[in-house]
């Protein structure tokens, strides 16, 4: 009976939302977007919000990658919240997986190809991850994908060496330092310019490495943070192997 109910519900929800989204144009030009209205100064602007980002984004934030500009600068607060979410996830998993009496689990040794391969590749993967989040404001991708790549490097080591264990203290220290840099950068912005997360560093020339003010700094911090957090999650999920 429950299956039937589930099917009926799923179909009904599909129909209901389909009816709604049929009314929404797909892939229209940005010019058809409605113009945004600023509630504080109470005037409607002559262009829509995305257009504003695309046209003035470069000289507002100095970043060429508009998504990064929005993620870190315009809506930096979201990212701050989102970093907390990841921080919460790793602490949550850490607290749930926390077991006083460490139960030892027997694990087979992986074969030689994986071991040597992972030893070689580990450095390159870390380098590649670092590249991604350092150039976050220039090329697609940013702190989060970069961090994920670094985490995959450590995952590789877990697969290769059964006895491998990342030190929890080190991971949580790096995690909190990265988090702190993000918040402190925000607070400095508040002290200097009166706005939290204000981009107080010079924007420099577009498409240059040291451009877009604070964004690379924040993205490096996010990269390190995401990397250490995901490894921490993987590590606590692994449990303890002798």
């Amino acid at each position: 009976m429950k299956k039937a109910l589930a099917i009926v519900l799923a179909i009904l929800i599909f129909i209901v939302f389909a009816l709604a989204f049929v009314k929404i144009p797909f892939g229209e030009k940005m010019s058809t977007y409605p113009h945004y209205y600023n509630p504080i100064t109470n005037q409607t602007s002559n262009m829509s919000l995305p257009q504003h980002y695309l046209t003035y984004g470069k000289n507002d934030t100095g970043a060429t990658n508009m998504v990064t500009a929005i993620v870190v600068d315009y809506r930096g607060f979201d990212t701050l919240g989102e970093v907390t979410v990841l921080f919460l996830a790793s602490t949550g998993v850490g607290s749930l997986m926390y077991v006083e009496n460490k139960v030892k689990k027997k694990v087979r040794r992986s074969n030689a190809v994986v071991e040597t391969g992972s030893k070689l590749l580990f450095g390159f993967i870390i380098l590649f991850g670092a590249y991604i989040f350092i150039h976050g404001h220039l090329t697609p991708g940013g702190g989060f994908p970069g961090g994920a790549v670094i985490a995959s490097a450590f995952l590789l080591l877990y697969l290769a060496y059964p006895k491998f264990h990342a030190k929890h203290e080190k991971l949580s220290v790096s995690e909190s330092i990265a988090g702190l840099t993000f918040v402190i950068v925000g607070l400095i912005g508040l002290i200097i310019a009166g706005y939290f997360l204000y981009n107080f560093l010079p924007f420099g020339l577009p498409t240059y490495l040291f451009s877009a003010g604070v964004i690379p700094l924040i993205y490096v911090a996010i990269g390190v943070k995401v990397g250490s957090e995901l490894t921490a999650i993987v590590d606590s999920m692994m449990g303890v192997r002798e």
């Binding site: 429950k2 109910l5 519900l9 009904l12 929800i13 209901v16």
Partner: peptide
């Protein structure tokens, strides 16, 4: 929890 999820769906449709 599954009944609860079903309640949620039904509530959504009723609301609509």
């Amino acid at each position: 929890p599954q009944d609860y999820a079903a309640y949620l769906g039904i509530a959504f449709l009723a609301f609509l």
